[in-house]
Amino acid sequence: MNKLSHMLFAFSLFFAIYSLIYAFSVWQSDFGTLLDMLSYFLAGGIVATLLVPVLYYKAPHKGMRARTTSNRGAVGAMTFIAFCFGSLGGTIIYQWISGVPIVGNISIFMGALMTVVGALMPDWDIPLLGISRHRNVIFHSFLLPFIIVMTTVLNAAINIATSTTFSVGAHIEYYIAALFLIGYASHLYLDIFPSDASPLEILWRAANPTDQAPTGLKRLGPIYISKKRARGWLVGNATLLVMLALALLGLYFYNLPAPT
């Protein structure tokens, strides 16, 4: 996958997360208005999705296997991304009309930025190690992002251990670190796809034990992952990051003050 694919998929994931959190906010406010919010969410997504056929049929070179808007395999990706972008627009419109604030006062800009930074960081092995070392096993693992957020994780663990409770405060670093980890995990998940695959395949391809990543990972000293084991390595490490991210998000929202 190229950088644009990773960026757009990360944006889409954050937009989906934002809409989900806002739906929870609306539900807390009044369950009846949740259906109203859902109508805006779906309308925005459907309207944006209508652009996909235009992008496809107006694109040249439809027979190419390369990942472009002319490729049939890209239609699923475009549909997913367009729906996420459009549904966020519908959610924001409803948020503006209804005046219901989102739980945690999450910033769209900061959240999207941290998710995209996480999604692009695995490819930092190119400027740091050279293109010949791309897909370095450490950059495409749980280890590097964990080191980056380790102070946040250790701080949370120490606070929980010393207070013997999960009421440790809703620190903004929890949610920022969680979104960074989700973005990083999205990159690892996408790397199990060939270049003409659709992100809509992520669930069954990630769970399919017979599937393989399109390429292997570059060794770092004695650490080497073969092409045969690359898919399991990428999926396993990405899943660990998602689990840690969900724990941090859960801790953040658990400690938010109750709505009045």
Rank of each mutant, 00 (worst) to 15 (best):
G130E: 00
T152G: 08
H6A: 05
L188N: 08
G169Y: 06
Y40K: 08
T79S: 13
W96N: 15
L190T: 08
T260G: 14
L154N: 13
T91N: 09
A245N: 03
V103W: 06
A23W: 02
A206W: 06
S87G: 12
I158V: 15
I106C: 05
M37P: 00
D191Y: 12
A59R: 12
Y224N: 15
A59P: 10
N255P: 11
E173M: 10
L241S: 04
V116I: 12
T239E: 02
A16I: 06
K227W: 07
T239S: 11
A16C: 06
V116F: 03
I46C: 00
V47C: 01
K227M: 10
G90W: 11
Q28G: 07
P194A: 09
A238E: 01
L251F: 14
L34I: 12
G169Q: 04
R72C: 00
N159C: 14
V242H: 04
I138A: 14
L55S: 02
I93W: 12
S132K: 12
L154Q: 12
Q95D: 10
A156I: 13
A230T: 09
L217T: 05
N71F: 02
T33M: 10
P259I: 07
G118R: 12
A197P: 08
S198I: 03
F146H: 05
W96E: 14
S39Q: 03
F109D: 02
K3A: 15
A170H: 06
I158C: 15
V137S: 09
G232I: 01
V52E: 00
M1C: 12
C84R: 10
V242Q: 03
V52Y: 00
N2G: 15
T151I: 07
G90F: 10
S12E: 00
H134W: 02
A207D: 05
T91A: 14
L113P: 04
K3E: 13
K218H: 06
Q212Y: 10
V117Q: 06
M64H: 13
